[in-house]
Amino acid sequence: MPIYDYQCTSCNHQLEAIQKFSDAPLLECPSCKAPELKKLLSMPGFRLKGSGWYETDFKTGAKKNLAGGDKSE
């Protein structure tokens, strides 16, 4: 589930909320209780783990290890 950043336009309180895509946006500020929360634009954060899934998953033969260069065994 994505993490959304919100800021209250009344008291400038900022918070993060984990919500589903289908959830309605938050409206009430937990700090001042005013219905003034607005979503902020933020950078998505994610990490690609593994041993080169982007390079090796769909390639075969000599094309399989392009990042290895001219390694000799």
Rank of each mutant, 00 (worst) to 15 (best):
H13Q: 09
M1R: 10
L66A: 15
E55V: 04
M43H: 10
D5S: 08
K38R: 15
H13G: 00
T9N: 13
G45F: 10
L15R: 00
M43F: 11
Q19E: 12
Q19S: 04
G69P: 06
S10K: 15
G61R: 15
G52W: 10
D23P: 06
A62P: 15
C8L: 12
S31K: 03
K59T: 15
S72R: 13
Q7M: 14
L66F: 07
L48H: 03
A62Q: 15
L37F: 05
L66T: 07
F21Q: 11
L26M: 11
I18A: 04
C8A: 05
D57N: 13
I18P: 02
K39A: 04
P25C: 07
E16A: 04
A62N: 11
D57W: 04
E55C: 02
G69W: 03
K71V: 09
A34Y: 01
M1I: 05
K38I: 14
Q14T: 01
S51I: 12
L48S: 03
C11Q: 11
P30C: 05
Y4H: 01
K20I: 00
I18H: 01
K20H: 11
S10D: 10
A24R: 14
E16F: 00
L48Y: 02
R47N: 07
I18M: 08
G68S: 10
G68V: 05
A24G: 02
D57A: 14
P30W: 03
P35A: 13
C32R: 07
T9M: 15
P25Y: 12
P44D: 08
G68T: 05
F58G: 09
N12Y: 05
D23Q: 11
W53T: 07
L40Q: 15
C32D: 03
A62K: 14
D23S: 15
E55I: 02
Q7W: 02
P25K: 12
C8D: 08
Q14H: 01
Q7A: 07
T56G: 11
E55D: 14
A67I: 04
M1W: 07
D57Y: 05
A34Q: 15
N12H: 08
A67H: 08
N65Y: 11
P44F: 07
L15F: 01
G45P: 00
P2K: 12
E36F: 04
D23N: 14
M1G: 14
P30F: 01
L37W: 03
L26N: 02
F21A: 13
K64D: 09
I3M: 05
G50S: 12
L41Q: 06
K20T: 06
A17Y: 01
K20D: 12
E73D: 07
T56N: 10
E73G: 03
G69F: 07
G69V: 06
Q14S: 03
T9Y: 08
L37H: 02
Q14E: 01
L27C: 04
D70A: 13
P35E: 11
P35T: 05
K49S: 13
Y6A: 00
D23L: 09
K59A: 10
S22Y: 05
L66K: 13
N65V: 02
Q7E: 14
N12S: 13
K39N: 00
K20V: 00
K71A: 12
L26G: 02
C11G: 09
A17G: 02
N65E: 10
A67R: 12
C11K: 10
G45S: 10
N65G: 03
Q7K: 14
C8R: 06
E73T: 06
K64S: 13
Q14F: 00
M43A: 14
E55Q: 11
F46W: 12
G45R: 13
Y6Q: 01
